[in-house]
Simulated scan of single mutants.
Amino acid sequence: MDIPDETSPPPGPEIGSLATFDEAVASGTLAGHRIQSLDLTGRGAALRSADTAGAVFLGCRMGPGAAAKVRADGAFVFPPVPGLPFDPYRGLLYSPDALYAGLSEGGYPATPDARAYRWFQRTRANGDAFASMLRALHDDAVSDALGGFLAGARVVGVMGGHATARGGAPYAAAARLGRTLARDGLTVATGGGPGAMEAANLGAYTAPHPDPVLDEACALLAAAPSFTPSVTDWALAAFDVRRRWPGGGGSVSIPTWFYGHEPPNPFADRIAKYFANALREDGLLTRSTAGVIFLPGAAGTVQEIFDSTTPNYYGSLGGPTPMVLVGRAHWTRALPAWPLLRALAAGRAMESRIALVDTVDEAPGALARLSAGP
């Protein structure tokens, strides 16, 4: 088989579902296609009859006869890796149900999310090149799926601290923000954790429902205000909200097992979870093409402010992305990121794309003004 290089023809379409696989077979060929993480044991006849030259099968299960045939065609076959709590070849983003499978029966420790975190803890520093490769494959597949899902979307990032407790006014304000942004036609993206991040995803989830639903949901969630001491109770409360009000609006969250002590919130319908935090941060901020709103937070939020500042400062993404900091006292006195941001922006194109506001409710208007330009 030939190894793809710079002279190779462009790859064929990516296939991440059996329905898409069947459509490709019906069209006459699988040549050059990328087939990800499918159980093809029931598609042996299709594989034996289709042209699979140059195809790449990533973690697909198939019978030995079918596997021998596609290899003889010149396809690459990367077999499934047994015993892992995650799929390194996955072709789709996670859903809350996928990460929290088994929550009701065995509690959070039994879920794929918790099992993946324990695997990461065991392997992150043991020098095992195979484990490192599996993490890299997984994260690259997640990035690919995230890019495909968000293509053409107007994405606004909402950053904020994980310590914002359910039941309080800051949580409710962040939830209203997420609802407003979603109703304005924006795709809300967060870091995916608890606190302000969860609140923004919750707001987007309740956007299609009447206004009182958000207040009722916040009241229900207040019974489990934090993921400590019990992630199980915290997560079950969120799934209770989802069951009471199905058909919620969509949003995206981008959490990481690097901070695996913070569980992913269940209100984003698409979850891009990474092992590598640096890839996660880059994936979150560079895809927030409609701007980023920074709620009060601590070290993680400060890091995100300046991770977003750097490409704006150098113009590496083409044009500056709007940045709105919320909480004048917080960002000028408690953690004075605003004076430094303003000093960096002075005289540059990004100067007209940054703003500091007092309250969360002012943030959507400020974002709209910055997006409209000077």
Rank of each mutant, 00 (worst) to 15 (best):
M1W: 11
E6N: 12
G12E: 07
A19F: 12
D22E: 14
E23D: 14
V25G: 04
T29Q: 07
A31M: 12
G32D: 08
L40I: 09
R43M: 03
A45I: 04
G59D: 04
A66I: 11
F76V: 10
P85G: 03
D87P: 00
R90S: 00
Y94G: 00
E105P: 00
Y108P: 01
P112K: 03
P112M: 02
A114M: 07
F130S: 14
M133F: 15
V142R: 12
V142T: 13
A145R: 12
G161N: 10
H162F: 00
A165K: 15
G168L: 10
Y171F: 15
T180H: 08
L181R: 08
A182F: 06
D184Q: 13
T187Q: 11
T190H: 00
A196M: 00
H209I: 05
H209T: 07
A219M: 06
T228W: 06
T232K: 07
L236N: 09
L236Y: 01
A238E: 04
G249L: 08
I254R: 01
Y259D: 08
E262P: 02
I271W: 05
N277Y: 14
A278N: 13
G297H: 03
T301S: 12
I305Y: 02
D307E: 15
G319M: 12
P322C: 03
G327L: 06
A334F: 13
L335I: 15
L341N: 08
E351H: 11
T359D: 14
A363W: 05
A363V: 02
P364K: 01
G365H: 09
L367M: 08
L367K: 05
L370G: 09
A372M: 06
